[in-house]
Simulated assay, not measured.
Amino acid sequence: MTTTDGFTAPLGEEGPITAHPRPIIVGVDGSTESIIALRTAGRVAELTGAPLRAVLAWQYPSVAYDGYATMLDWSPEAQARDDLSATLSTAFGAASPDDLSSSTRPGAPAPVLIAAARHASLLVVGSRGHGGFAGLLLGSVSEAVARHSPCPVLITRGPEDVVLRSLSTTDERPIVVGVDGSPASLEALRIAGDAAHLLGSPLHVVIAWRKPASFVGGRSLPPAWSPEDDARENLHRSATRVLGRSLPPGTALLTREGPAAPVLLEAARGARAVVMGARGHGGFAGLLLGSATEAVIRHSPVPVLIVPDSSDRAERIEAMTPATADGGLPPRPDATARSAPEGEHE
């Protein structure tokens, strides 16, 4: 294992990485969830032969507090290095993956991870965290990572044994993937198909459909039109386009009536993982916008893999990679500063 303050080839550096497989990035903060994420990422690296890169974000305290000025020997960067080393030791002990390196990065968690993922094959994060990745899957940080990561994001939902079992080649549970015909969902289907082949897993391809709101109250649908038939045709078209006309053994095409998030959560019961596109339309419209995202990410009993539309990768990287996430040091607060007493704000 190599533990460094920066990778040999800095993450976020422009230019393609062609000499070696693209790395797997894992967000670390010392929490139990990030330890599970590390072990999960290690297993994926073992299966795929990809290098593993552990990243911990650090920041100066945003507001100085009483006693901070006396902590002249304390360094958040040094603390981050110590935390990272301790977490790696807890996760792997003496059996660290051969191609493991680590880095502490200055900046807020989401931009740091998104910058680190610029040339990655996968970004792995825990479902909850603290420290450098506090609230990683709650609110704006979760939304930023899910929407803007340039590579797929694996969220390690569930207890450690459930998560690691999902990567076993002897697990007979299916991989569930939601499709709606959008580019992101087709990419999700491709990756889910590759994962099913790698793990020897059945693949359940699911599409959700609903009657238009104006017809839910009992009004008849227009003659010769059926939203369920439309969904079934969309599902078959998507599956044959990505997987081929001869579907792989163990592949099931499933149409389910209902909103996207409940349909996927129901399908996740008894599955090993759920895969979905970062953006979509039709049955999975707005899947990563608002309540549907929170429902799937927060309530899935199994790991969730979010797959971006690869066609707009460059735009997402440009939009979500500030200078501080790419190696620039954020400004250090004045150690002598004090928060203004109540009633004395400017």
Results as ranks from 00 to 15, higher is better:
Val124Pro: 05
Val125Met: 13
Gly126Ala: 07
Ser127Gln: 10
Gly131Ala: 05
Gly135Pro: 04
Leu137Cys: 14
Leu137Met: 11
Ser140Thr: 13
Val141Met: 14
Val141Trp: 01
Val141Glu: 12
Ser142Tyr: 02
Ser142Asp: 09
Glu143Lys: 14
Glu143Pro: 01
Val145Ile: 15
Pro150Phe: 01
Pro152His: 10
Ile155Leu: 14
Thr156Asn: 06
Thr156Tyr: 07
Arg157Thr: 02
Asp161Met: 07
Val162Tyr: 00
Val162Thr: 15
Arg165Asp: 12
Ser166Phe: 09
Thr169Arg: 15
Thr169Leu: 01
Thr170Arg: 09
Thr170His: 08
Asp171Met: 10
Ile175Asn: 10
Val176Leu: 07
Val179Ile: 13
Asp180Thr: 09
Ala184Ser: 14
Leu186Glu: 11
Glu187Pro: 02
Glu187Cys: 02
Ala188Trp: 02
Ala188Arg: 04
Ile191Glu: 10
Gly193Tyr: 04
Ala196Thr: 04
His197Ala: 15
Leu198Ser: 07
Leu199Trp: 00
Gly200Thr: 08
Gly200Trp: 07
Gly200Tyr: 01
Pro202His: 07
Pro202Gln: 11
Trp209Arg: 03
Pro212Ile: 07
Ala213Leu: 09
Ser214Asn: 11
Phe215Val: 12
Val216His: 08
Gly217Arg: 10
Ser220Asn: 13
Ser220Phe: 10
Trp225Leu: 15
Ser226Met: 06
Ser226His: 06
Pro227Val: 10
Asn234Cys: 13
Asn234Ser: 11
Leu235Ile: 06
Arg237Tyr: 00
Leu243Glu: 08
Leu243Asn: 01
Leu243Tyr: 01
Leu243Cys: 03
Ser246Gly: 07
Ser246Glu: 10
Ser246Trp: 00
Pro248Ile: 06
Thr251Leu: 03
Thr251Trp: 02
Thr251His: 03
